[in-house]
Design a binder for these strands. Structure first.
Lengths: 119, 119
DNA sequence: GTCAACTATATTGTTTAACAAGATAGTATA
DNA sequence: TATACTATCTTGTTAAACAATATAGTTGAC
């Protein structure tokens, strides 16, 4: 499993909430969107459990609407509680993000130059 | 469980490696250090499993030294592989950090003003 | 008409990580 | 001898990411 997958943990919920805050989206669309934003491997197996979890928490709610070009879609919208939760997550993230960036960036050792295509 | 705990996932390893890179430390000390830096609840139950895991991966190695004021301490040092791993983590982190910050910061809605001491 | 490809949602099972709780033990001091 | 602090380690619980798979509607090729 990639390191990225682990790094994602806990941030994914926030990312999903943000996207839904901006516009009502359905799961499949959301998955593609997050991928294009830079959260690489956020596929269906990841996104649907997240959506169900957030719904169970009462942070979003789903609404099934027919599509003219495929199976029904389930569009999600942020609830009031969801907005509050997103605020909390933003705050938590910014705290941790600052702390970690400060730590990781202290470039006493700048010898990371060994960028050898390795994957 | 706190949101913070989930946000931490996957970043902790990097933080631990960075601290060890800068100086040889022992677990108990490391735990206090991370707490003071802003990673709040990184207690012994968290730090020792992390250290064992990193050692198993060959990224750090431990060396027991007696202490004059308490039980023996196990000091950890970064290995060459550990340095490489840290570089990778730095790179991964900066990628995700940028993506998430961009997402979360688009302050169309600045209504997070409800900062009501809530914990 | 049926087959493949794409869209779309959902579930099951595996793996990994954080961390509370508690066991163990050395030192210090009251 | 009791308790407080330092220090390490382990066990068990919980949550999350995600691969794999199942299901089903639509479309177009043949």
């Amino acid at each position: 499993m990639s390191t990225r997958s682990q790094l994602l943990k806990g941030i994914l919920d926030g990312c999903v909430l943000v996207v839904i805050e901006k516009e009502t989206v359905y799961g499949y669309e959301l998955s593609k969107k997050l991928q294009s934003i830079g959260l690489a491997d956020v596929s269906e197996g990841t996104i649907y459990p997240v959506l169900l979890r957030l719904q169970k928490k009462g942070w979003i709610y789903g609404e099934i609407r027919p599509s003219e070009e495929g199976p029904n879609r389930k569009y999600y919208t942020l609830t009031e509680n969801g907005k509050k939760a997103l605020c909390d997550i933003r705050r938590e993230w910014s705290g941790i993000s600052v702390a970690v960036n400060t730590l990781l960036r202290e470039d006493e050792n700048d010898e990371c130059s060994t960028v050898d295509s390795g994957k």
